[in-house]
Amino acid sequence: MKKSAILLSILLSAGLVSKSYSQKTLTKIWETDTLISTPESVVFDTKSKALYVACINGAPTATNEKSFISKLDLNGKITQLKVTENLHAVKGLDVLDGKIYVAEIFKLVEIDAKTGKVLQKYEVPNATFLNGVSVDKKNKIVYFTDMRSNRLWKLEKGQLVKVAEGAPLKTPNGVFFENDKLIIGNGDGKILALDLKTQQYATIAEGMGGLDGILSDGQKGYFATEWRGKIWHINPEGKTQLLLDTVDAKMNTADIEYIPSQKTLLVPTFWKNKVIAYKVN
């Protein structure tokens, strides 16, 4: 190895110079029919190879009892418009062992993915606005946020347990479980990492607007959205890149999903009533 290469390797290891990360771009590949009414969140079920969408179907408030879950294929075709219906203003959702877990305003709902039957509703103590949901598949735990109460919760072995509360949480919306940490999209534009073993927080990135969805890019970085209409990429060093800005077009970007094997980012557009898929280049 040349001396210059050895020196660069030493400097990189010491953190004295930064690695060069390529900029990413989005190319639209499909969009759904607008029967997907007020979509807030989308998740890919790796077992069934299906997409599930939480459709608020109206106002995102507790009085709305017309929400439903839709099922799509990977080309955006609606295969079942209403897997489950008559839910209350649903927000984030995820899938664990054949069950869909979705947040209503005050309850976490457990649904059989095959039949659409509601198996259980877990009423969260003093809940004000439940939102993002993410699962730890190995340990069979469901994590979720109570945005307006600045709390993080988990469902483990049928029991609700408060994980964290208060600062630096500030209207936490999206949440993503990764390697014994919770990655959190904060309302102050920061992405936080909560170490579940030490209960210590770290700031991964900041300087964005109020965040909604947050998830891994499969390369030690993240994708994040602002509900008002912005999609960001955050590289492993915490540097942000604005990938999409649809604020002026009044197209929201809610709780996203990313499929690394297909390099496909799925975006619920809320009031535009459709899910849009983008290829990440």
Rank of each mutant, 00 (worst) to 15 (best):
T171D: 14
D33E: 13
G92N: 02
E31H: 09
E165Q: 15
L192Y: 09
E178R: 11
A113Y: 06
K3H: 14
Q262V: 04
V118A: 11
K190N: 12
I231D: 05
K154L: 11
N86I: 01
K24R: 14
T171V: 11
I234R: 01
L11A: 10
I56K: 08
L182M: 09
G187F: 07
T38M: 11
Y143N: 07
S9T: 11
A89R: 07
W227G: 07
Y122N: 01
K154C: 13
T79P: 01
L130H: 09
S70I: 08
N126E: 15
A167R: 12
K250D: 11
Y222K: 08
N64M: 03
N179F: 07
W153C: 00
S13E: 12
N75K: 15
V161M: 11
K239C: 08
S134I: 06
A54R: 06
A193T: 09
E65T: 14
G116P: 00
I100P: 05
D245W: 01
Y52P: 06
G185P: 09
V90I: 15
Q199V: 06
G209C: 00
S41N: 13
I29P: 01
T32P: 06
N173R: 06
K137T: 14
G76Y: 05
T34K: 11
G158S: 08
V142K: 04
K117H: 03
K250L: 11
I29S: 06
G221Y: 01
T61G: 05
A277P: 02
E226H: 09
K230Y: 08
V53Q: 08
M208H: 01
T225P: 10
K274A: 00
I276F: 05
N57H: 12
V83S: 04
T115E: 10
M147W: 02
D248N: 15
L215V: 03
D94P: 03
K157C: 04
G158A: 10
S216T: 12
T79G: 06
H233D: 05
L87F: 03
A193I: 08
Q241P: 07
V133R: 00
S216R: 05
G207L: 12
K274S: 00
Y143K: 04
T171F: 14
I214H: 02
L12Y: 13
V53G: 04
S9H: 13
W271P: 15
T25R: 12
V109A: 10
K49T: 12
D97H: 12
P172H: 03
Y201V: 04
